[in-house]
Nucleic acid binder design. Structure first.
Lengths: 172, 172
DNA sequence: GTCTATAGTCCGATAGAC
DNA sequence: GTCTATCGGACTATAGAC
C-alpha cells in the first residue's frame, strides 16, 4: 500500500515490493498467486463476514432474512476493521487500475457463489439461493461504493439498510 | 474458439492464434488489448442490448420497468444470435479459466455501471439508479447461467422472467 | 534460487485504400 | 495525402517449472 500510494500501482513492480519487504521476487509469488492478489488479503475474510453467517442462520429465517442479517453484522465489523479511512485508501488504489477493479468484482462474484451454496445448504431451492446471494452482493456493492465516496458520513450499516429498502421499493 | 476448444485456453498462446489467422503476434495486440479480450467481441454489443434500451425508455416507465423491458428484448436477441449452442460453447471456455471468468464478471459490472448512468440520464436518482442496474445484471446472470446449463430447455426469456419474479418474491 | 516462457509495450517502417 | 492495417525487433514484467 505504501509503494502503491507513493508511485502508483502500475509503476510499482513485484521486484520493488519484494525488495521493500526485504525479500526476493520469487518469495513474493510464494505468498501471493499474482501481483493483484496482494491487495486482497482475504480468502477467509469475506467468508467469515458473509458466507458463514448465512450458513449458520436458523431454519426459520427466510432466504432474504439470512443475507440481511449477514450484511448487518458485516457492516458493523467493517466499520471497526478496516474502518472507513483504511477502506478509502485501499479503494483509491483499486479504482486506479482496471485489473484491480476486475479482481475486486471477481472476488465479490466468488463470494456470491459461496453465499448461494450456503443457502442451498440450509435448504433454499434454486433460483432463490442464487438470487438472494446476488441481491446481497448488489446491496453491499452499492452501499460500499457510497460509504467510501468523498464527503459521505453515514455509516455502512445505514447505507446497506438504505440499499435493501431501495431494492424492495424498486420491485414493489 | 477453434484453438481454445481443441487444446484449451491456457495451452493456446497468442502466437498460436495469430499464426492460425495468418497474422503476427504484434497484429493481434493491435486488435485486442489482451489475450482474454478476444473472447469478448463486444463493446457495442452489451451496450446495444442493455444500455441503449434503458436510455431510450419513455419517462413514464419506472426504473425497474426500464430494465425489465431491456432484459426482455435482450433475451429475444440472444436466443437468435448468438443462440444457445454458441453461447454454451463460449461459456464452456470461459468457465474453464479463472482469468476469463474474472473478465466476464468485470464486463458485466461495467455494463451495470453504464445502465446506472443511463438511468440517471432519464432522471432516476441514486441509489435507485445503481440498484436497479445491479438488479438487472443479477437477474440476467442467474438466468444466463441456467440457460447454458446442461439439459436446460426453457428459453432465456422465460428464465429471466423467473429471475425477476424470484427477486420480487424474495424481498416481498 | 535459477531458468524460461508468455504476455504485453514502445519504437518505428511499410504498403494499400480511399 | 491521410487513414488504416500490416510487420519487425528490442524490451520489461509477470508468472510457472523445476
Amino acid at each position: 500500500m505504501e509503494l502503491f500510494t507513493e508511485r502508483g500501482y502500475e509503476q510499482t513492480t513485484v521486484a520493488d515490493i519484494a525488495a521493500h519487504a526485504g525479500l526476493t521476487e520469487r518469495t513474493f509469488f510464494r505468498h501471493f498467486a499474482d501481483k493483484r492478489e496482494v491487495l486482497f488479503p482475504v480468502g477467509t475474510w469475506f467468508h467469515d463476514l458473509f458466507v458463514e453467517p448465512v450458513a449458520a442462520a436458523p431454519d426459520d429465517i427466510s432466504p432474504i432474512g439470512a443475507v440481511t442479517r449477514a450484511l448487518a453484522t458485516a457492516a458493523k465489523t467493517m466499520e471497526a476493521e478496516p474502518g472507513r479511512e483504511n477502506a478509502r485508501a485501499r479503494h483509491r488504489i483499486v479504482a486506479s487500475n482496471p485489473d484491480l477493479l476486475e479482481r475486486e468484482v471477481g472476488k465479490l462474484a466468488g463470494v456470491a457463489a459461496a453465499i448461494a451454496a450456503a443457502q442451498r445448504g440450509r435448504g433454499v431451492e434454486e433460483p432463490a439461493a442464487s438470487l438472494t446471494a446476488e441481491l446481497c452482493i448488489a446491496a453491499f456493492r452499492v452501499a460500499f461504493e457510497r460509504w467510501v465516496a468523498d464527503g459521505e458520513t453515514r455509516s455502512l450499516g445505514e447505507l446497506i439498510e438504505e440499499s435493501l429498502e431501495g431494492i424492495a421499493a424498486a420491485v414493489a
